[in-house]
């Protein structure tokens, strides 16, 4: 990972982590990215705990140091404690995660694989457990988490070492 940042964040701070990043250099997209992140957290068709499961699996796979340290308050309130967040890791299949949470991890892994794709067993389990609308909603969330975390990694300037876990509220200005 590049130790130096390849693009500068704006000097003026707004309090919104997206607007305060280098993404602000692209006014043609930044407002929609802020709106998208807000819509994913506030209007998705699955629970915040499931969203956080997808987000953390993606963060750990992409190795986004910032994303890995963040925990959303809304997901914590929905039951994704730190102990449960730790289960979203190797061996998750045998953990105390719920069946839906395990399926969310498997869905994320299918998306994050290279090349991406899923086998018959997972497809059928997903179809039994989730509605088509919920599956579509999880893919929108995954795409959002994935492209924003890979953007952060690609821009560079991240610390090498893990950061302490930080609990964050949903942004208020979007």
């Amino acid at each position: 990972m590049s130790a130096k940042a390849r693009a500068r964040a704006p000097a003026r701070r707004t309090g919104n982590p997206i607007r305060d990043s280098a993404l602000a250099l692209v006014p043609e997209t930044v407002d929609e990215i802020v709106a998208l992140n807000s819509a994913v957290w506030k209007r998705s068709l699955v629970s915040p705990a499931l969203l956080e499961t997808l987000r953390l699996r993606n963060a750990r796979t992409v190795n986004c140091v910032f994303c890995k340290a963040v925990r959303y308050e809304v997901a914590r309130a929905d039951g994704l404690t730190e102990a449960r967040a730790a289960m979203i890791d190797t061996g998750y299949q045998d953990s105390a995660l719920t069946e839906r949470e395990k399926l969310a991890v498997a869905l994320a892994d299918s998306y994050l694989g290279f090349p991406a794709g899923m086998g018959a067993e997972l497809a059928q389990r997903l179809a039994r457990e989730f509605s088509a609308e919920q599956i579509a909603s999880m893919f929108v969330a995954l795409m959002t988490f994935n492209f924003t975390s890979r953007t952060a990694v690609s821009i560079g300037g991240m610390p090498e070492e893990p950061l302490p876990v930080v609990l964050v509220p949903l942004a208020t200005d979007d």
């Binding site: 693009a7 280098a22 993404l23 250099l25 692209v26 043609e28 997209t29 990215i33 869905l107 299918s110 998306y111 994050l112 090349p115 991406a116 794709g117 899923m118 086998g119 018959a120 497809a123 059928q124 997903l126 179809a127 599956i135 893919f139 995954l142 795409m143 994935n146 492209f147 924003t148 890979r150 953007t151 690609s154 821009i155």
Partner: peptide, 26 residues
């Protein structure tokens, strides 16, 4: 920065489309 955003969106959409095609198949 724009290119990085765009590549992430394109790649994500390719990945999602592949998974959805598998869902349709299986």
């Amino acid at each position: 920065v724009f290119l990085i955003e765009a590549l992430g969106c394109i790649d994500g959409r390719i990945r999602t489309a592949r998974c959805l095609r598998d869902l349709q198949r299986f």
